[in-house]
């Protein structure tokens, strides 16, 4: 191991503050958490109401603009909230810039893909597909 002669203060200061707008993400985590409370209630109710429904019935359900809108909001807020949580977990447990950066880019990219895919599915159903 390399000899470490850096002063304790130098080590404590490190690279200083990132000033990367983290407070905004911190706020969005809380905002999406609050929004997800009614959205999840609606979602659970929707799942129960449509349990065992046929493809045509589901399609008709999402044909109602409000149902499609609420579903898309649930997807967007849920993914945003889930991914921010996951990013924090990565920051906590994956140390080392290379590993962390790879995951910090890959995870949101996958989330965007998943989000677009799910929204397209809802739209196709809503439009009678």
């Amino acid at each position: 191991m390399a000899l470490k002669m850096q002063s304790p203060l130098g080590r404590a200061r490190g690279r200083g503050a990132a000033k990367s707008g983290i407070a905004h993400h911190w706020f969005m985590e809380r905002l999406t958490a609050v929004a997800l409370v009614p959205l999840m209630l609606w979602f659970v109710a929707a799942v129960i109401a449509n349990f065992g429904a046929s493809h045509a019935e589901i399609s008709a359900f999402f044909g109602q603009p409000w149902n499609a809108a609420l579903m898309i909001m649930t997807i967007l807020f849920g993914l945003y909230h889930g991914i921010s949580g996951l990013m924090i977990v990565l920051g906590d447990y994956i140390h080392g810039p290379a590993k962390h950066l790879t995951l910090a880019l890959a995870v949101p990219a996958l989330a965007v893909l998943a989000g677009i895919y799910l929204i397209v599915c809802v739209l196709i159903l809503a439009l009678g597909g």
């Binding site: 200083g16 503050a17 990132a18 000033k19 990367s20 983290i22 407070a23 911190w26 920051g91």
Partner: peptide, 9 residues
């Protein structure tokens, strides 16, 4: 100095 994902958040 605190506006940082690690130092404070």
């Amino acid at each position: 100095a605190l506006d940082d994902p690690f130092k404070l958040f």
